[in-house]
Design a protein around this nucleic acid. Structure first.
Lengths: 345, 345
DNA sequence: ATGAAAGCGCTAACAG
DNA sequence: CTGTTAGCGCTTTCAT
């Protein structure tokens, strides 16, 4: 009753059925070369006796932890929650456990987490980098040990590590083009301090669009921040203080865009009439803020599934053909136009 | 280079230093009865040789997985992200790994996850129940085996499982009282289909407040849903279809409240003039929707820390006194009044 | 303060 | 198709 019964092992089953532990083991893992009848007997006995396999022993023997680590900036978005759901589905189907950690977009925390995961011998790693991260040396230990590492969303280019992402250049280009065709002449861009691959790509798409429309980019309209909510407010203050204000703002993420819009609204700026807005990610907030925020949407669940599949391929040394010539995999994205950018309805 | 070097073990260190593996093991875990000098030599050698301990072997020997499971409805809220951060901090300080799963508020998924965690031999479990869950039998296997189980936020009353929660009755009472003092006469309540402990408590607080103010509760104003975004829209439609509409709505969570408000606004209802609103949780959306949503706030990070501490106490058989007579632990909460409920400013 | 030895429970050659 | 055997790397008595 109060003391839990002893855990039963394959030896207990073996004894009960008068067969060897090896056969029990094989039967339990559905090994092809076990007689169908013994297999059945073993499985029934296991069931009845309340057997549960001992992963620790199995892991030790196989020299695999059976654990996959995933490091993300923050779990707090429907995008990331969906990524996790997609990853979880694929990995648990494949029998892996998932250990999730948030870097809270802090580089030092990311380094510590990476170290901890390394010491805990994860069999593979999925990473979406912190905004702050400007190099990925802290993941080299995995590469050196041959532990598969797959980046997603906020990726780091590395010859041996696949990256699942969207075409940030194109998405940023498209959304900027949209602002231009709405008649915006002076478009500000709010981005990260450190131009990570993602931020850099978006910035590049933004500049390319301006060029193509013969608009010169005013350096004064580049606002670099840490992309927090507070940063959105600060960016708004900066904009309010400008003598020659922009007529549109493209923020590289929605959360920051929304807090920036709120602060501007509090100061009497009309959106989109005075200043049009565009964000990135299609977070929940984007369709709650008024006016609703124009943004870029991409599917977290799917990205999670794909990232997990690629990782599993690496673990199994198989190749389902998802990655051909390059180790970059581009997922679809689309721009969603809402009222925050519609100057001419 | 391309082949990763062999993992080194305590035996390698032992050989290098001409001592026994037992001593190395003891030195590494800082056992008191090891000579301070040998300890130092061992630790240096380990460092130099690139040793990392093998958790799998250690786990097998100690018959502990070193893994704590946490099951939540959905990771997608700043509250839950903070809970995770708090839990993670406490547990990783204590040397545990954390496996996170989302039930997506689906009872069957919750059952499967519980089973998987049981089979993976988690050393302890933290659970916030799915909205749908109406009994907790699927967690009995943990109780029977003596595996510590701690509920938080959406708890299940159980003599052997502590529950960390807020005073839902009081919070709901207070927020309802606030609506009443704003002059609301007919207050609708949107809650879950199944009245879990949390939903039931909030409903109870709501009714108690009405009673205390001599208001009879109209059964027609009780709207039971699955609390999704779509449910908010459906609830709005129900309200619009009523011949005798409420003048206030208290929704048992913010996400649903916000989507309900949006739908009502689309249909020309003015908030709070026509219908006042109150929610629960203080999610990000609550301070973005216009008018901003009156709600109940409580701290996720702190709740996560406390839940983890209680779990660690159980694991260590210690008792830091957090739980005295009862196995319920009430965390602070506060109502946040915003424009959605201010009929008289 | 250190060492010898046993064993946690499982899997994988290898042999039959 | 099944059994024998060895060992994954660590911790922990029990001696010394």
């Amino acid at each position: 009753m109060s003391t839990p019964e002893k855990e039963i092992t394959i030896y207990d089953i073996a004894r009960a059925l008068n067969i060897s532990a090896a056969t029990v083991s094989r039967a339990l893992m559905d090994h092809p070369s076990v007689n169908i009848n013994t297999k059945k007997r073993v499985q029934e006995a296991a069931q009845e006796m309340g057997y549960r396999s001992n992963q620790m022993a199995s892991n030790l023997r196989k020299r695999k932890s059976n654990i996959i680590g995933i490091i993300v900036g923050n779990l707090n978005s429907s995008f990331m929650s969906n990524v996790i759901a997609g990853v979880e589905k694929e990995l648990s189907d494949a029998g892996y456990n998932l250990i999730i950690s948030q870097s809270l977009d802090n580089i030092n925390k990311e380094i510590n987490i990476a170290q901890a995961m390394y010491n805990n011998r994860v069999d593979g790693l999925l990473v979406s980098l912190a905004y702050e991260t400007e190099n990925a040396d802290h993941f080299e230990s995995f590469v050196k040990r041959g532990i598969p590492l797959v980046y997603f969303d906020r990726v780091w280019p590395h010859p041996q590590c696949p990256g699942i992402e969207i075409d940030n250049v194109k998405a940023a280009y498209d959304i900027t083009e949209h602002l231009v065709t709405q008649g915006c002449k002076r478009i500000a861009h709010v981005t990260a301090y450190r131009l990570s691959s993602v931020a850099a790509d978006r910035f590049a798409g933004f500049k390319k669009a301006l060029e193509d429309y013969q608009m010169t980019f005013d350096e004064n309209l580049l606002i670099q921040t840490d992309l927090t909510l507070q940063a959105g407010i600060d960016a708004a203050k900066q904009i309010l203080a400008m003598e020659n204000r922009p007529d549109a703002v493209f923020v590289t993420n929605d959360a920051c865009a929304v807090s920036c819009m709120q602060e501007l609204k509090r100061n009497g700026i009309r959106i989109p009439q005075d200043i049009a807005f565009a964000g990135f990610n299609n977070d929940t907030e984007a369709s709650i803020i008024e006016p609703n925020l124009t943004t870029v949407d991409y599917k977290g669940y799917q990205m999670g599934e794909v990232a997990a599949q690629i990782l599993l391929d690496r673990l199994n040394q198989t190749d389902n053909g998802l990655l051909k010539t390059s180790n970059k995999l581009i997922q679809p994205s689309e721009i969603i136009i809402r009222d925050s950018s519609l100057k001419r309805k």
